[in-house]
Design a protein around this nucleic acid. Sequence first.
RNA 1: GUGGGUGUAGCUCAACAGGUUAGAGCACUGGGUUGUGGCCCCAGAGGCUGUGGGUUCGAGUCCCAUCACUCACCCCA
Length: 424
Amino acid sequence: MVVSAIKGMSDIYSPEVEVWREIEEKARQLFLRFGFREIRTPVVEKAELFARSIGEDTDIVQKEMYTFPDRKGALLTLRPEATASIVRAIIQHRLHNIPTMGKFFTIGPMFRYERPQKGRYRQFHQIDAEVIGFEDPVVDAEAMYLAMLFLEETGLRNIELRINSLGCSLCRPPYKKRLVEYLKNYETSFCKDCARRLNSNPLRVFDCKVPGCREIVSGAPKVTDSLCEHCRQHFEKVCFYLDEVKCGYKHDRNLVRGLDYYNRTAFEIVAGGLGAQNAVGGGGRYDGLFAELGGPDIPAVGFAIGMERLMILLKAEVKKERVKRPDIYFIALNEEAREKFFGLAQNLRKRGLYVELGYELRSLKSQMRRANKFGSSHVIIVGESELEKKTAILRNMDTKEQSELPLDNNTEQVLIEKLSKENE
RNA sequence: GUGGGUGUAGCUCAACAGGUUAGAGCACUGGGUUGUGGCCCCAGAGGCUGUGGGUUCGAGUCCCAUCACUCACCCCA
């Protein structure tokens, strides 16, 4: 019986992995221009961190976390998202006291124990960004702008930004009360899940896709209409700044999010082609989280982008050839020939060339075929007659030109010069 | 956690209604050129048909179970 990977967790290899690297690199470059610094936190944390941040009554905490005791019985959790860990790290190292350190990003794996399907995996990767310390709506807008800009720069088209305001600790509780009052009138008509949500987390009925529930919800009071003056102005300002940079968005009054820590601004970036998992990214403001986790009371905004989902949307990109072609492919026709150029090959690599070696002493024809499969631009052949003359054959695979070069202490230099000359 | 679909060579897929030795393309190896790639030609290698039971004279094919993958519900990136 062969051992296979864990369900819902995949190996990432060529040619996809080259695209991953490109995208990650693009993210780093862009985020740096926006003043973000990278932060890398452990993938395991104490279980309570997530229960306290994401919310006891969310699906993530209730049934989707990888939680297990370590050897001494401490409950650990594989992080289901990045925000909680980053906030924890900021509080722990007092990073909020450093004026130039207000923006953080991280790229890495997250874990949720769910039934895998298209765009949803048990180990998945997020590009995550957090801006801390600012309450001003300009920050919300900039975060969304950055998320959209990044996705566009990867080549994505036809994505939609959906935004909403969830209110704050002042206006949400009274709103919640009104909502529950309204919903109670239809208590018997809800689906099983919504009936439960009614008591546990009433805002989430807005997420329900059951037609009956949707209908009831369409008549329900909306958060947006119940915002306090402060939140209303905040939301308007967010919209203003988005307009200012011509960042299109749709005000989705039914948008709520699955993590409890969000307040005011919440957003999602949706795309077709992902099946049921239509969000490539999402985020929002979480002003209360720092205090909730025992830190100073500082506001923050953040978002995450799903790598796997982005990859699905960018699938066509994978077909492009991204693997470099070798500058030189060495072919030895016998052991003695190989002994002669092994050192040379390593030195050329040190000097920056991509060099491949034929590791098997097979027929010239078969080694040539192999060199060709790699797309090598040059081949160096050494066999018996070359050994006698102390030379090597250099063949340009594109032009088929061949020349002899002396095999001595100077070969390395001669080769480098020759190749760089050709590239002019 | 619930439901549907699919499991045959490394990959993509065939195999009439249950019937001889499970095939093809691509990929792989060797040869066609004593030591020169791509195209072409020839040959070769590669399979416990996911696994375990059952029905049958006979199972890749039918039945049951199980596992894996996949899609959807739920939830979210």
